[in-house]
Design a protein around this nucleic acid. Sequence first.
DNA 1: CACACTTACGATATTCGTAAGGATT
DNA 2: AATCCTTACGAATATCGTAAGTGTG
Lengths: 299, 299
Amino acid sequence: MNLSTRQLRAFIALADERHFTRAARRCHLTQPAFSALIRGIEEEAGVRLFHRSTRHVELTPEGQVLDASARRLLADFDLVAEDLQDYAAKRRGHVAVAALPSLAAGWLPAILADFRSRHPGIAMQLRDALLDACLDMVQQGTVDFAVAARRADMTGLDSQFLQADRYHLVCPQDHPLARARRLRLQDVLDHPMIQLARSSSVRQVLEQAAGAPLPAPVLEVEHLATVTGLVQAGLGVSVVPAMTLFHFRRPGLAIRPLGGKGLARPLYLVKRRGRTLSVAAQALYDELLRRRAELEAAA
Amino acid sequence: MNLSTRQLRAFIALADERHFTRAARRCHLTQPAFSALIRGIEEEAGVRLFHRSTRHVELTPEGQVLDASARRLLADFDLVAEDLQDYAAKRRGHVAVAALPSLAAGWLPAILADFRSRHPGIAMQLRDALLDACLDMVQQGTVDFAVAARRADMTGLDSQFLQADRYHLVCPQDHPLARARRLRLQDVLDHPMIQLARSSSVRQVLEQAAGAPLPAPVLEVEHLATVTGLVQAGLGVSVVPAMTLFHFRRPGLAIRPLGGKGLARPLYLVKRRGRTLSVAAQALYDELLRRRAELEAAA
DNA sequence: CACACTTACGATATTCGTAAGGATT
DNA sequence: AATCCTTACGAATATCGTAAGTGTG
């Protein structure tokens, strides 16, 4: 047996109105078309559901059986439909994003806040993690997508280039390098350097860009905040991508862009290959892509 | 939003099979037609519900939302549809009939037993009552219809002639009337008579048929069984319709048909005007009409 | 290259609205 | 006579199946 929600709605309209012409109006149909719709239900069910005399319309006993259930049935259906359209309209939903710590702290907050205010019904989850952890979470499906760099093993992943995060020198204001007009990585390598651990994408991309192994750093630490302190104390200089510069906008420190091609950390939106994002996740994905220019401005 | 159960079934089939061609087969459709059906749901919902690559079909997050509810929705619907078709197919239902005591005892039992055995799911109710009570129950809607005679006030009632219940003389075997070849009511009126109360249809119809008021009876009683006893004891004779004769088929009693036009109690199926009977009630109504010939045979 | 989904397209069914028919009050 | 449901019918729309197109393993 096959019925449409239109037919159910028509049935209920007629059961309410007990009048074909009025019920037809309620369904935005002409009366004959409406009549045919009702006839269709009766044929489908194999029972007469309404008794019509020219002056009165009323439910037959079998019509009453259907009437008792039809409203609940349709209400149930509408609830599901509404639910579905809530997801479609981004009134409800869920997004989980993984992001490199620098992005999670620098670029994303404003965008997420904006997204949240436009879609308050969408639950968001932000996992700030180092590169490998970010990509692992994508592969495992823990998050919908990641904002991160790439690595050697990208099997099963689909990356969309976002923006190049260009590297900058950070050093004390009175450091000789702070006075140079055009700086290249080679100019910096002679000076004592503070570096992040090899597990960080900042360090990995830098080494890859340099072509050769970098000279051993003076100190190698885990967190950027530590780098800030060490540079400020004059222990050395460091080279970090633009997205991390907010750590270094402090009195006594100078920030200088580094020239030279390839001296940038390419950032990507990374999702699982072949997986469709939820409407909510896709919306955030698109939004990040749309606002990728702000990655430079944030620097 | 408007969906049909066919679309819901198609959705579930595809969610199960994750394969258009197989799901299409399950729905008895060609694959392209099935594809269009699914596309229709997605357009209606405004969301993509399945992710298709040429090699894999899987639910999108929104598809999963629908999947969670679709099965329950359809199961609910099928339950209601099945219920409705049970009524249509007379596997379920309810009939309430009122009948004159003579009919309730003589004619109906065999028919009801037969009806019950053919439709064991239909609940039956039989109210045996005198004429007025029978018709009142019909008017009040307490019963679906009645098997009875008519009365003066038949407003709002719709009667369908069933069979004439012809009157017979009952008397002791050795009574002079028992030897007569052709009997007419006039021949009987000279002898002492036992009568039922005026409230009975048996008595009412008889008086009406006689044209003039009947001579005062020797005795006037409530129940036919009492009449039997009195006639058997030789206190008088009586005139009763064929349907009651089973009371009088006893040793020592004679039964003789009475000639004369109009000497019959016309029996009707009486239902409320304009009211449609339930499928079950209509089925019994039709059956009674069909087997009206047996009313004579039963006599 | 074989499998699987989509697109294209002509044929068939369904559905719609207008207009006429029939029944009841 | 007025109201209201049904029937009739041509037009617009939807749906179906066949056949060709496209992309993936």
